[in-house]
């Protein structure tokens, strides 16, 4: 914790160390952490117990070297084997993120108060129009919260139940969950735009829609593109575990090898996920640098 500039009263107390307020914050933080640790049943001894050490040693012994047989990696047909599952994971994340953007754009617009009912675009609006806009805003925000609050893997389970096993269920799961995440981001960015710029466009006689498209949206497009790419990197990680519920991708290999205690194969699958995540992070950050 840096004391010097962390609060309004910090400068006065810099000489005497922690201020009273900082001390309270620190103590409060400790109490919350202790309570959380108790609830989470934190028990360091469990890690050090003899049984635990044996199990971990067994995993390391059997997991090394990782399984690299041709049959495990490539399988017997095109849509088989670990490498195909990795490619499938990548494909699920790409299509899933694209669909998520397609859903998040309209929902993000209707969830931004500056688009629906507040700020310079609504200065001459009737009370009725503002009420309608506010209703749309709240409804749309609620939808986004719901989409976001149900985890991707739960959506995956629901879609597998609805349309059957396979990667398309994974695509839909990622699309729906991330529409909730991205839609909220887009809306928050739109609410954070410079109202004077939007007002200037509206002041020249543009319609509200035009002022949104040409005054508000261009202020945030680079930021939005950058965050969407970052979100795509996150969906790769989510897509890697969708296989747990049969929604395609490399997660199937993770769960099946754990259940069958095939630690050599599990090691290979973990390494494959690691390689996928590192590669996509590298690619994502390269693309984001080019956007900035």
């Amino acid at each position: 914790m840096s004391e010097k500039y962390s609060g309004p009263d910090a400068a006065q107390h810099a000489a005497t160390g922690l201020s009273k307020r900082q001390l309270t914050t620190l103590l409060g933080g400790c109490v919350i952490l202790a309570a959380a640790a108790w609830i989470a049943e934190v028990d360091p001894m469990a890690l050090l117990a003899a049984g635990a050490r044996e199990q971990m040693a067994a995993f390391v012994a059997e997991g090394i070297p990782p399984e690299t047989s041709r049959e495990y990696l490539l399988g017997r047909s095109l849509r088989d084997g670990l490498l195909w599952a990795v490619v499938e994971t990548l494909a699920i994340s790409v299509v899933g993120t694209t669909l998520a953007v397609a859903l998040a754009v309209p929902l993000g617009l209707t969830s931004a108060a500056t688009v629906t009912h507040r700020g310079p675009l609504y200065r001459n609006a009737s009370a009725g129009r503002i009420t309608v806009g506010r209703g749309l805003y709240h409804a749309s925000r609620t939808v986004l919260s719901f989409l976001r609050s149900v985890p991707g893997i739960v959506w995956g389970f629901l879609f597998v139940t609805a349309i059957g096993l396979g990667p398309f269920a994974g695509v839909l799961a990622l699309a729906v969950h991330n529409a909730g995440v991205l839609g909220k981001l887009y809306a928050d960015f739109l609410e954070d735009t410079d109202p004077m710029t939007t007002e200037a466009v509206a002041g020249s006689g543009a319609t509200r829609l035009q002022a949104v498209c040409h005054g508000m949206v261009p202020q945030v497009t680079p930021t939005i593109a950058s965050y969407t790419l970052y979100r795509w990197e996150c969906t790769i990680r989510s897509a890697a575990i969708l296989g747990f519920v049969g929604a395609g991708g490399v997660g199937y290999y993770l769960v099946i090898t754990i259940q069958r205690l095939q630690y050599g194969k599990l090691s290979t699958a973990i390494l494959a996920v690691f390689a996928l995540v590192v590669t996509s992070d590298w690619l994502g950050s390269r693309l984001r640098t080019r956007l900035g």
């Binding site: 410079d194 004077m196 710029t197 007002e199 200037a200 466009v201 020249s204 006689g205 543009a206 319609t207 829609l209 035009q210 002022a211 040409h214 005054g215 261009p218 202020q219 497009t221 680079p222």
Partner: peptide, 23 residues
């Protein structure tokens, strides 16, 4: 000034004509 900072000079100037364009 209230320009759209991330758009070009030309795009900013042309935005003065938006009121005359169809949606």
């Amino acid at each position: 000034f209230n320009l759209v900072e991330r758009l070009t000079v030309m795009e900013n100037i042309l935005s003065g004509r938006l009121g005359y364009l169809s949606t």
